[in-house]
Amino acid sequence: MPDIDIVTPLRPASLSRMGRSLTAFFLPHRIIMVLVALFALAMMIRTMDWSWLPAYMPRLWEGLGITMLMLVVSVVLGFILALPLAIAQVVGPLPLRWLALSFCTVIRGTPLLLQMWLFYFGLGSLLGQFPEIRETWAWPYLRQAWPYGLFSLTISFAAYQGEIMRGAFTGVPKGELEAARAFGMSRAKTFRRVWFPRAVHRALPTLGGEIILQLKATPLVATITVTDLYAVITKVRQDTFLTYEPLLFLVAVYLCLSGVLTVLLRWMESRVPDAR
């Protein structure tokens, strides 16, 4: 149904567009709302107990670093792992296809917390029982918690992203692949030059949302004693017996993180031409 109410204006120069979107944002009621919010923030800062903040600042930065490290590494590794998962589901031989599909279903059908605890408590204690593993170079790492946290975050991201990539692979128009074949490209070359880049291209818009979701999954690693941002805040709460201040601080930090990530991802998305 054509929407006649909306007239698409010509795009003005970007500077005046920014100015206009700013004036469009600051309507009278919004100015009042922002003032109320600022007042509430000021009251929070004045009336609540923030004396713990300077002492814990170095640890909070460290925790933030671990959170970001967990996010970036699990997203990169998970994405790399998602590609074979998707490809196996689309073109793989039947047993492989079945295997990839059931992997995705199982990971997506059970809570991440349960998986993490299974890997940390179950796998961690199982690995310790083999002297062969205790001898290897990997053991000093496997005794710590973070490999299990990173592993389960990666697996989970791979499963969700694999499902999206599967849809992206099947969504590439048949005509493009047929055109590539008609040019005499081999199947491998068709895949490398057309099918794969087009699928990644189609999956890109959802990637931003998935990364935000992954950021929101990272505090779970605190439950297996990885000292990320959330774990540091938990420590603060235990030390100071404060209920609200640390949690509100945490909410503020995550709001900023999500905001920065969203802007960053949107900028990156705008760099990719979106030819359909």
């Binding site: 950021l215 929101k216 990272t218 505090p219 609200y244 949690l247 909410v251 995550y254 709001l255 999500s258």
Partner: peptide, 17 residues
């Protein structure tokens, strides 16, 4: 706020509040 903050943190906050 709901979409930007981890569920775990929101749940703790809502629970205590």
């Amino acid at each position: 706020i709901i979409r930007a903050v981890p569920e775990l943190v929101l749940m703790l906050l809502f629970y205590y509040v």
